[in-house]
Design a binder for these strands. Structure first.
Lengths: 140, 140
DNA sequence: GCGGAATATTAGCCTGACTAAGTTAGTTGG
DNA sequence: CCAACTAACTTAGTCAGGCTAATATTCCGC
């Protein structure tokens, strides 16, 4: 019964709750919220339109509007317009925004890196093997 | 470099963000929020005091007060008093609360179970092996 | 060129987190 | 023994971040 789905589900559920917890604390005290960080990440490779951002973050458009408003006030992004379609607003990283994104990424990755470095090589290998499986969950 | 902590950290970070996402959606549409579910779970084995609950959920006391207020209004918990110390308020599951807890647990576990059942046996084994490692993260 | 579809924004509401301040009850020291 | 301190909660006020409904603007097909 070691691979019994129900039993496994209880364990996964417990571990995930623990990790959610961890993730929330990881970003505490940083200059932007985790949502804002996520949005900045979406802008890394060029301007995006509002609907794209909303879909990518599985959020309604009004919610994204508010997020972008805040990022714009903070000077991290700028709004533009699509020359081909005046209905479309584009959003783009400012120089400050790109710097902030990289700084936060370094901090976040650094945090996790330290925790992972404390594991044994075997444990890291086990973890690495499980990542594709975890990523698969929820795609159903 | 397959077990390079920095590289692994980036992947873990990405997968965790995905899973957080999944978790939030999993509970959507259920009769109580995931926070409320967590609190009910803490009460499963008997009455607890407010400070205990707040600490256990890493939340300030006022936040817990509000949560308990809602649960009490919903008839899922009752407040009592510690006969030995009149400053202390205790919180306890009602019969309804216990039923709700079990119902939600069944629903949540069921959801995950279905997703896990869709995996191969090998994938489940890989996942099971990684759980202890994941649980270890964040304990540092 | 008009009506319907697409794109955003604004407004209003909810949850859940926080801090600051207030209340009530125990504890301790002069 | 009572004044001051500490502990346990609650209340009030603020903020982020999510939602839906309503509104403006622009595009497109006929």
């Amino acid at each position: 019964m070691r691979d019994d789905p129900t039993h496994l589900a209880e364990q996964v559920s417990t571990v995930l709750r623990h990790l959610v917890f961890l993730l929330r604390r990881t970003v505490a005290g940083q200059p932007i919220t985790s949502q804002q960080y996520g949005v900045l990440g979406s802008l890394e490779h060029g301007p995006r339109r509002m609907t794209e951002l909303a879909e990518e973050h599985a959020v309604q458009l009004p919610t994204m509007t508010v997020q972008i408003n805040r990022l714009e006030e903070a000077g991290l992004v700028t709004r533009g317009s699509d020359p081909a379609d005046a209905r479309v607003r584009t959003v783009e990283l400012t120089v400050d925004g790109r710097e902030r994104l990289l700084a936060v990424r370094r901090a976040r990755i650094g945090h996790l890196t330290r925790e992972l470095a404390a594991l044994t090589e075997d444990e890291r290998a086990t973890l690495a093997a499980a990542l594709p499986v975890l990523a698969k969950l929820g795609r159903s």
